[in-house]
Nucleic acid binder design. Structure first.
Length: 475
RNA sequence: GUCCCCAUCGUCUAGCCUGGCUUAGGACAUUGCCCUUUCAAGGCAGUAACACGGGUUCAAAUCCCGUUGGGGACGCCA
């Protein structure tokens, strides 16, 4: 049975990199009918907050990465870590370290200055008559794990292949801080053992931690899980993705009008591929996912491709669904007021004309503005170019014709337009563009007949009259 | 500094494991054309890559070594 986990630390929002790690874990679990577990690594009490825990959960839910067990929290398990640490000390596999953080920092700096490896020198490793537990508490000492100092440790990574580490590179890491709290490399192992993790799937920034953790597994007497280290996501300047490169928080993409499935699709293709296919349903992702197709090289986050994917997802989404999703954006963009009622059927129809012109839900909302608004504001350039003496009579004529129309449909409207342009021997554009400006305020919109039908007779006539008046006032 | 990882168009990638089928394929972006009432969407076409150097081989993007470049780790952070 495959059991995997996503184990973020709540020191920030769910970000793009974390989301991808979570996604790969999720896909691997689902592909193998396994279990996906969420664990919150909050042992750093000074930086972890409840708000971030909530934010991470919110992000996971938005992306549709449902977990089967958890969220477990490490702060609930401090007693367990302590007893494991005590056991290791008793067995001589770990020891108390009396060095103060300041001393260690000073030594580390000196080692770097001398061009040496900033590794712990092991000076507390063999102190005779180590302190008792009481003495330890009094003196606030830390617990260090005894790493083997010779031989090699081999990590057989599912993505990177065989990696050999020289054990003399490993240093005796602290597993319990002097304040009695456990540290990361220790808690991961204890927890992964306790919740029976079979595959550790994480970013390759953890690759160097792996040999250390392997030795902790061994010291504890447990089987070592399989590892899969995912390549990093970098920014456009090839450095680690950060705020400097733009939005990195998953929920920021929700606010920018992205669809969660589009983000998921983008993220999965960053490092993973399935032939030439670009767009995948969730079912396909689960069916096709495998580490065999995960690349080894870091990938650069490319917002433009994400935007394209989002536009594709909007095009393919049912208008009814988009109608639901766009409402918060209509409110946020001040197009409707909070709680204002919109006819869902009408809204869906309007959205159908706008889907292939909107790359985000924000764009969609803003395009809906001219369908919904009571008053149209003209773009100055558009007004100057199309609302003038040349178009005045045409608009008047159209206005007259439309007043008597009862079947306000695209077919009927097209017929009327045709008659007018044939009569005056002009191109459709000469009539359509002025009407477009009258209806939308600008020169870009869906087909003019669709626009008229959706705006509806009453508003169409009002807008035509306003346009005619505007021309009269200007000329 | 030490250790680890990585290297195909600007970007994401296919091909690499199991050398010849490759004048290196697809996608985003970009340029042009078509469609067209505008804007999109769509269609067609174009520009564009095997980091470098050695080997192995009849044959290397594919295997090996080195160089260079990039990334990551070296914490009483995770």
């Amino acid at each position: 049975m495959v059991r995997v986990r996503f184990a973020p630390s709540p020191t920030g929002f769910l970000h793009i990199g974390g989301a991808r790690t979570a996604l790969f874990n999720y896909l691997y679990a689902r592909h193998n009918n396994g279990v996906f577990i969420l664990r919150i690594e909050d042992t750093d009490r000074t930086r972890s907050t409840e708000e971030y825990i909530e934010a991470i959960i919110e992000g996971m839910k938005w992306l549709g990465l449902e977990w089967d067990e958890g969220p477990f929290r490490q702060t609930d398990r401090f007693d367990i870590y302590r007893s494991y640490a005590d056991m290791l000390v008793k067995e001589g596999k770990a020891y108390y370290c009396y060095c103060s953080p300041e001393e260690l920092e000073a030594r580390r700096k000196e080692a770097i200055a001398q061009g040496k490896s900033p590794k712990y020198d092991g000076r507390c490793r063999n102190i005779e008559g180590r302190g008792t537990r009481d003495e330890r508490q009094e003196k606030s000492v830390a617990v260090r794990f005894k790493m083997p100092q010779e031989g090699q440790t081999v990590v057989d990574d599912l993505i990177k292949g065989k990696i050999v580490f020289e054990n003399n590179q490993l240093d005796d890491l602290i597993i319990m801080r002097s304040d009695g709290t456990p540290t990361y490399n220790f808690t991961v192992v204890v927890d992964d053992v306790d919740i029976k993790i079979t595959h550790v799937i994480r970013g390759d920034d953890h690759l160097n931690n792996t040999p250390k953790q392997i030795h902790i597994y061994k010291a504890l007497g447990y089987d070592i899980p399989l590892f899969a280290h995912l390549p990093m996501i970098l920014g456009s300047d090839k450095t680690r993705l950060s705020k400097r490169h733009g939005a990195t928080s998953v929920m920021a993409y929700k606010d920018m009008g992205y669809l969660p499935d589009a983000l998921v699709n983008y993220l999965v293709r960053l490092g993973w591929s399935y032939g030439d296919q670009e767009i995948f349903s969730r079912e396909e992702l689960i069916k096709y996912f495998s580490f065999e197709n995960v690349g080894k090289a870091a990938a650069i986050f490319n917002p433009e491709k994400l935007l394209w994917l989002n536009s594709q997802y909007i095009i393919n989404a049912p208008a009814e669904k988009l109608a639901e999703l766009v409402i918060p954006f209509l409110v946020k963009e001040n197009i409707i007021s909070e709680g204002q009622d919109l006819n869902k059927e009408w809204l869906s129809k309007a959205i159908k004309t706008l889907k292939e012109r909107s790359k985000t839900l924000i764009e969609l909302a803003n395009s809906l503005r001219y369908y919904i608004a009571e008053e149209i504001e003209y773009d100055e350039k558009a007004k100057a170019k199309f609302l003038n003496e040349k178009s005045r009579d045409l608009l008047i004529e159209l206005n007259d014709r439309l007043t008597s129309v009862t079947d306000f449909s695209t077919q009927e409207l097209e017929k009327i337009f045709k008659e007018i342009i044939e009569k005056h021997n002009i191109k459709l554009g000469s009539l359509a563009q002025p009407v477009r400006v009258a209806m939308t305020g600008g020169t870009e919109s869906p087909g003019i007949f669709e626009v008229l039908e959706i705006v509806g007779k009453e508003k169409v006539l009002k807008r035509l009259e306003k346009a005619i008046k505007t021309i009269a006032n200007t000329f």
